[in-house]
Amino acid sequence: MNIIGIESYLIIGLVLFLIGLFTAISRKNIIGIFMGIELILNSSALNFAAFSRFSARSLEGQLFSIFIIVIAAAEAAIALALLLSIYRRFGDIDADKLDSMKG
């Protein structure tokens, strides 16, 4: 068994995904949550690249990863803008305090 194989990548990707999910749920800081989302996206990109190399043997997976990275960047830009407006209004970026709408 080769250690640089599909299994290693799958496990790394899975760990990244789950830690990202965990971070996104447990953090109070919106930026922290967003870091979790970035981890999730990274894990998917890694998975795509790995599958592209080991499983499909075509470059389409890599291309998918590139697009994921680009979208992630765009999402980060929007997140920053919204974050600033939240900060202006609430003076805080605690996700738990954003609960004026409920029920």
């Binding site: 690249a49 890599q62 680009v70 960047a73």
Partner: peptide, 23 residues
């Protein structure tokens, strides 16, 4: 390691140079 050299560069440039800086 995945022979994805271009992807690696993109990751460096966009993620570290872009997203992380934004964060």
């Amino acid at each position: 390691f995945l022979d994805a050299d271009f992807l690696a560069l993109v990751q460096l440039i966009i993620y570290i140079g872009g997203v992380l800086v934004l964060l």
